[in-house]
Amino acid sequence: MKFSILVNEGPYTHEAADTAYQFTKAALDKGHEIFRVFFYHDGVNNGTRLTTPPQDDRNIVKRWTELGEKHKLDLVVCVAAAQRRGIADADEAKRNGKDADNIAPGFRISGLGQLIEAGIQADRLVTFGD
């Protein structure tokens, strides 16, 4: 079955970011397909490569990147929510005159239409949030 995942909370503050990851991983382990993982609201903070948790803590961002690489996941960060919260890729940084970008490997920035498409194309859309 084809799933889409919506992540609405940032890492380390709300468990939703962990639950979403564990759910996605379990779905893949069961042989399901993940059409897209869409990050919205503070969820966009799951996509910054500048995250540096203590060594004895999980690295939530890196976990997504690695799962993404392994399963060729489409990890999409909402552009409007990302701009508000200071998440940018090289193009976005340049366009908005910023001195750096911070998007983590495996993530891409795109519009809200990607969320609607994720709802249309997948058999199930599951939301994780506060």
Binding site: A26, K30, V126, T127
Partner: peptide
């Protein structure tokens, strides 16, 4: 477990997350 969560989602047509 998380696998059971996945099964529940698959078994039902839609999911409403009461956030």
């Amino acid at each position: 477990d998380y696998g059971g969560f996945v099964d529940l989602v698959a078994e039902h047509n839609t999911v409403q997350s009461w956030l």
